[in-house]
Design a protein around this nucleic acid. Structure first.
Lengths: 188, 188
DNA sequence: TAAATTATGACAACCGGTCTATATAATTGT
DNA sequence: ACAATTATATAGACCGGTTGTCATAATTTA
């Protein structure tokens, strides 16, 4: 099959590195060194090179975050409460970039969106899938479909931004403020 | 003196490139080529190399955005209206990355915040200065100081996020949604 | 003119992604 | 069972581009 264990190993390592360091700061040498794989394996498993690895890494991260998000969103029935849990989860993992969860795809998205249409689309679809998760939660709780879609987009954007600023300022305050304002934002 | 015209020229070129492409994707060769300056000038004007250029570029961009922001915010007395103008301004300049205005510092912030404390701090201070501008506008219009500070942070984060997602999705919808929701977000 | 400052382009050391050439394992045919 | 062929896996060489240095030229100042 096309998917050996070493392939997945490379992909997981690459995903973490791309999230934390970004596309250009992450070299193939670093990926193979940290994953313990031999150099030659890269172009065997990913014949199209770095761009292919990044593409699959974005899709992979998109899925991981989707699952984590889904778990947190279904933990409570109340949309406000569960969304606040999502934010709190980000706060908790702020200083631990070794945990993949919570570090966004925003960096690689901004880096590549004006460079590779393939990568741009992959990032865009990850964003959209997260937005849809938020919207669905609101629809379940009686929001009209159009309104839920709007709020899903707004919430995902706001999360992305607050996370960016919190990381940059090395301070969870932006995320904590967002958490407190969620009841105000989620209004039918 | 330390500030010749060629120095400023290099700085302006570098600022644009760092904003659009990011830190690691922008090489010194590209900076000197696009600015028309000779290679040697870089290390004459910026003896500490790339990191120094990036640092000054972030400070420079922070100031430019601050001025543009201030202009737009003072155009209308009503805070909702003027904030919506800020968002509209971003929408208008979405597809024109050649205009510096509107392209954020988010990319270089995410790229460098886990790499250089100096750069992280510079980006952080740019963010803070923008947040303060929003907060001041609200204070002028009767908001309590603490509440205005909260909202200033929230607004700047949300703008950053919506811009990131709009650029990535090549679609101004996230920004347009944010614009419509501003009256809802700005509540005392 | 002499000295000090300002400015410059050629050069070196290095690191990146890519690819080729080769070794090992699996599969197939006879 | 053994040979031939294909598939899998790997190490290292290559080329282009990166940052940074430095000896020297141009310009200003005394």
């Amino acid at each position: 099959m096309g998917s050996s264990s070493s392939r997945l190993n490379i992909l997981e390592t690459a995903s973490k590195l791309f999230q934390v360091q970004g596309y250009h700061a992450t070299g193939l040498n670093q990926i193979i060194k940290e994953s313990g794989s031999p150099k030659g394996s890269i172009y065997y498993h990913f014949p199209e090179g770095k761009e292919q690895i990044a593409l699959e890494a974005v899709e992979y991260t998109g899925k991981i975050v989707r699952e984590q998000l889904n778990k947190t969103l279904t933990a409570s029935a109340d949309p406000v409460e569960s969304l606040q849990s999502v934010v709190q989860h980000l706060v908790d993992h702020l200083g631990h970039p070794e945990d993949v969860e919570g570090v966004p795809i925003g960096l690689i998205a901004l880096e590549t969106c004006s460079m590779s249409e393939k990568l741009r689309k992959a990032c865009s679809e990850a964003f959209t899938s997260w937005q849809r998760l938020f919207a669905d939660k609101l629809i379940e709780n009686g929001f009209k479909q159009d309104r839920a879609r709007e709020l899903g987009i707004l919430l995902q954007c706001t999360l992305e931004g607050a996370l960016t600023v919190s990381v940059t300022q090395d301070n969870s305050e932006p995320l904590r403020i967002l958490k407190e304002q969620i009841p105000l934002i989620i209004k039918p």
